Amino acid sequence: MANWSDPRTTAAPFATGADTRSVAYDAGLRSYMLSVYNYMASGVLLTGIVALLFSMGGTSSPAAAVFMSGGILKYIIMLSPLAFVMVLSFGINRLSTGAAQMIFWAFAGVMGLSMSTIFLVYTGSSIAITFFATAAAFLSLSLYGYTTKRNLQAFGTFLIMGLVGIIVASLLNLWFQSGTMSLVISAIGVLLFAGLTAYDTQRIKLMYSHVAGTDMMGKAVIMGALSLYLDFVNMFQFLLSFLGSRD
């Protein structure tokens, strides 16, 4: 009598070529995404450490001296992160992987200098609560973007248009100084970067099939980390305007 309960009688004697390729692809994708998240998290950590150190001492800190003086150094620090983002975004094809990594770390450090003012404005406890709330939301949204079968790329144009709108509204509010407008911008900003977190995660995942095994893979990791870093930091800043308690 055939031993129908013996799994050895129904198991395939060896994996097919397609199965082997699928396993290799999945392992490569996991390694790729893990590298992206490692760079992103390390960048956020570096930014936080630099911001904390630069603001130590409160009104006697280097951050207070720079940002309360109104000198040119204030504007250099504020605009430097944008310069690094532009160099990476428009020059990534001409940069080596090592150069892209160094620029990313320099960007994260300069962002720390720029963001150090939050420690002068908000209480430490409210910054910590907002950070952990942002981290929880980011992890959930990124996990959704990674696992969902729904194509989120269709939302890309809408989200980019929203981002442009937020930038324009923020610049206008520098002139009007409206508290209500600031709250509206912050609320829309949180929702916008929540959507971008899921969208960018899926986009980075799909990018793997184009860069796997090529010289662009290392640079794709950096650019993916930069996108998720910006999503996290912007969501944190907009959320802080709601949850943050001022000193």
Rank of each mutant, 00 (worst) to 15 (best):
L196H: 10
T157C: 06
V44A: 10
L73P: 11
A220Y: 05
F90A: 06
L34S: 12
A135Q: 10
N38H: 10
S96M: 05
A51T: 01
V233Q: 03
Y208N: 04
D19T: 09
G124N: 10
S227W: 11
A100M: 06
N151P: 09
F176N: 13
T16D: 07
L171R: 14
Q177P: 10
I166D: 11
A100H: 00
A65S: 11
I77E: 03
M223F: 10
I103M: 06
G28A: 14
A11R: 12
M181Q: 13
V211Q: 04
A194W: 07
A83F: 15
F138I: 04
Y122N: 03
L45Y: 02
S182N: 15
F131E: 00
M56K: 14
P7R: 01
G109N: 05
S116C: 11
I77V: 09
L152C: 09
M217I: 15
T214H: 01
S170F: 12
I127D: 05
M216R: 12
S227K: 11
F238V: 01
M235N: 08
R21Y: 08
A51E: 04
A64W: 12
T197I: 10
F158T: 09
H210K: 15
V50E: 03
G195S: 11
A11E: 15
K149I: 05
T123L: 07
P62Y: 07
P7Q: 02
V110D: 00
V110F: 06
A106D: 03
G71P: 05
I72E: 09
L88Q: 00
I77C: 08
S5P: 09
R30E: 12
F131H: 03
S125P: 08
A11T: 08
L228M: 08
P7L: 03
L88N: 00
T10I: 07
Y199K: 13
H210Y: 15
A18G: 07
A106H: 02
T197M: 14
T10Y: 11
R30T: 13
F119N: 06
V66Y: 04
G28N: 08
S22Q: 12
L79T: 15
S35W: 10
I166M: 12
F242C: 01
N173S: 09
L152P: 00
F104N: 01
A108Y: 02
R150D: 10
T16F: 07
A108G: 02
Y32A: 00
F232D: 06
L243H: 08
A100K: 00
L196E: 10
T134C: 06
N173R: 13
M115D: 11
T214S: 11
H210I: 15
L82K: 03
T214N: 00
G156F: 05
G244V: 01
L82S: 06
V121Q: 03
S126Q: 02
Y32R: 07
